[in-house]
């Protein structure tokens, strides 16, 4: 058929005009100036903050209780070990959240009066757990389930914390996914169904993949905030990073271990935060190919 061959290579382009050359020199100079200005203002800002901190009346005491190297290094291995537990819980919870959230979002996307009870249940679930503070969910699950007395042996607090995390975050993620599903144009479902795919097949093969792409930044955000909230399982007594720090603090009355834990959490989530930013930027670039604004 009539296929256009790719246009001749750039070699055949005429040489750059003086006009364009001038524009490029100007833009280059402007770019360098912007970089210089932002560098300078950043440095000035950092210096001001440092001076204010160091100059504050309580700086000596604050430094010794929060940023004390004597406590920093000894605390590091113990807190890091605790963080390992946080990571394990997170890994399991993420899988649980993915499964439960997809099922919830799928249920809520069912059409027709027959499915009203299912839709209603899914909606009630998401409303409940989105509205309830995570700490409360943790307490209710962590202390409520063992109180029911189903098991003679004590139930692992790590397990209970993981369940609580899944309950809360699956409701957030389900809502994000549902928004994504609704953002996929109905004609896509129509096209999928007219190929003979079932409702489920169309959802799995056509709608969900597009929905997930649309909401990836939001999902990553939920993931990052989950990375932090996984530290709350310490309130149940699980010896995670925060709990490990707490133990040291209560023995030494020095708060540096908390800073250690905080830094470790930041370090742990930092790659994902960058990844989220990168994904968001890439999606934006894709959606406005060729635009200047």
């Amino acid at each position: 058929m009539t296929q256009q061959s790719p246009a001749e290579g750039s070699r055949s382009l005429p040489p750059l005009s003086d006009l364009e050359r001038g524009r490029r020199v100007y833009r280059h100079r402007q770019a360098r100036r912007s970089v210089a200005i932002s560098l300078l203002s950043t440095v000035v800002f950092a210096v001001v903050i440092a001076l204010v901190l160091v100059g504050s009346p309580g700086w000596q005491v604050t430094r010794d209780t929060f940023f004390n190297p004597e406590y920093f290094w000894p605390a590091l291995p113990k807190v890091a070990e605790g963080l390992l537990l946080n990571m394990q819980v997170l890994a399991i919870a993420v899988v649980g959240v993915a499964v439960v959230a997809v099922v919830l979002a799928g249920l809520r996307s069912l059409k027709g009066p027959v499915f009203f009870p299912l839709r209603f249940l899914a909606a009630a679930y998401t409303d409940l757990f989105r509205g309830m503070p995570f700490l409360i969910v943790l307490y209710l699950i962590g202390f409520g389930i063992p109180a029911l007395g189903f098991s003679d042996k004590p139930i692992s607090v790590v397990l209970l914390g993981t369940v609580a995390l899944i309950l809360t975050y699956s409701s957030y993620v389900a809502e994000v996914l549902r928004a994504g599903i609704e953002a996929v144009h109905p004609s896509q479902r129509l096209a999928a169904r007219s190929l003979g795919l079932s409702h489920y097949g169309a959802l799995r093969l056509v709608v969900l993949p597009q929905a997930v792409r649309k909401v990836t930044p939001a999902l990553m955000n939920d993931f990052v905030s989950m990375q932090k909230d996984v530290g709350l399982i310490s309130v149940l007594g699980a010896v995670d990073a925060i709990r490990a720090a707490q133990v040291i603090v209560s023995n030494t009355y020095n708060y540096t271990p908390y800073v250690v834990a905080g830094l470790l959490f930041v370090l742990f989530s930092w790659p994902f935060i960058r990844l989220t930013d990168w994904l968001t930027a890439r999606q934006q670039r894709r959606e406005q190919i060729g635009g200047l604004v």
Binding site: S187, L190, A191, R193, S194, L195, G196, L197, S198, G201
Partner: peptide
């Protein structure tokens, strides 16, 4: 779904 699989559609 079986019926739709027997019919091709172009929109």
């Amino acid at each position: 779904d079986g019926v739709r699989a027997r019919i091709g559609v172009v929109f």
